[in-house]
Design a protein around this nucleic acid. Structure first.
Lengths: 222, 222
DNA sequence: AAATCTTTTATTGTATACAATTTGCTAAAT
DNA sequence: ATTTAGCAAATTGTATACAATAAAAGATTT
């Protein structure tokens, strides 16, 4: 169906950005990207335009594209939004989960827990993402699911730093346990509250994240 | 700053779509648009790509762009999301509103109420939008504000039909009154609940909206 | 006459060409 | 030595050219 060159570039660049291969603030030279993908500048520009619309790339008129940087204020706003979106997903998940989904969810949670006492951060990161995606899906609202995933994607360059903080894996996994229980029991209110608290960056954790944030990841002015 | 041709087209086309000048399903011929705006196809394509990323336009590979159509299921999902987003805005607004904003909010509410008993639907539509936008802004979360506005924009081709239903103006305005009171009092919980109920399309209202929906506005398959 | 196949036309997607602006460099001046 | 001015090179934004695909029209067959 979608065999256009431009649309093939989007997910590749997206992946490079969210995994940190291309870092916030880094210049995205059109000619360079054209060479890398063996296409002309035209599809490259189209791809960059789409990434800009999704917020991962920033296009400064006549001055080229860079991987989007975020001000501290924006970052806080986005994390706040994320906590709310995931909370909504959990609430609907608790109300709408099917018997088959209950099995999947329990399995995903156990996969996470199994890695919680290890120090395999990348593996935990992946399993953790699967669990969260599963909850989004269980909301049975495709639009909500996509919006939540999109925001998670946009935050991932910043989120990846967070998980490495000592002791975070264990406490994260413990919170998952309670959350999944709430969803399985159909307690929507509790599921929403637990999720919001789980995702929100508050108090000490916030300063921890700030401290580990490379200075070029955020804009100078707030 | 932003003097590129392509970026000038985006808001114009956007406006045409949300106001219904260009209707869902309608073909967007590149050559025609190029002629209309006195530019080549290149900036037209870039503009269409961006509108596609924001969801207002649908690009079918090798078959051109159309104004996005939405399946009934998607429409329900989007209205559900909208109710939640506005609810979050109201909750934060109640917690964060400043004294100056209290005055603005009260004024905006009264402007709405003044038109509630009239049949000036378009005027009410505008004042209503101002009030809602003000609440988004009062959330003091720019990201949440923008996401909520974007979704409202996307829904506006469908929402405009809704307000014409007899008696809707008055009941909408009454709900506003209670909502604004809750925000002014700082009752975040109540503000969120009232907003969700206000925005959500439920029960009879849902079938009313369905009945007034032109069949070509929605996709055949659900 | 209806349906299917072939040919023509139109439209999309990509590459290249060119104009406009910005950036980097060199040189002069304070 | 640092700053400023002017020039050169590189880069962006738009237009045009061309190739690939889809839509439309016409011809042929049943």
């Amino acid at each position: 169906m979608n065999l256009s060159r431009a649309s093939e570039l989007v997910p590749v660049l997206e992946q490079d950005i969210v995994t940190g291969v291309l870092k916030p603030g880094q210049k995205l030279d059109e000619a360079m990207l054209a060479k890398r993908f063996h296409v002309s500048r035209t599809p490259v520009r189209e791809a960059l335009g789409k990434l800009a619309a999704s917020g991962l790339v920033e296009i400064r008129p006549r001055r080229g594209a860079i991987v989007a940087t975020i001000s501290l204020r924006e970052l806080m706003n986005m994390f706040e939004m994320m906590a709310n979106l995931e909370g909504i997903c959990a609430r609907y998940a608790a109300r709408r989960i099917t018997p088959e989904e209950k099995l999947e969810l329990a399995a995903a949670q156990e996969a996470c827990a199994a890695l919680a006492t290890s120090e395999q951060y990348d593996d935990y990161y992946d399993k953790n993402m699967l669990l969260h995606n599963l909850i989004y899906k269980t909301s049975h609202n495709d639009f909500l699911e996509k919006q939540t995933q999109d925001l998670r994607l946009r935050l991932s360059p910043y989120r990846r730093l967070q998980i490495r903080i000592p002791g975070r894996l264990k406490s994260s996994s413990d919170e998952h346990g309670k959350l999944v229980d709430a969803i399985l029991k159909g307690d929507a209110k509790l599921a929403e509250k637990l999720t919001r608290d789980h995702v929100a960056i508050q108090g000490e954790r916030f300063t921890d994240v700030l401290a580990t944030l490379p200075s070029n990841y955020v804009q100078a002015s707030a």
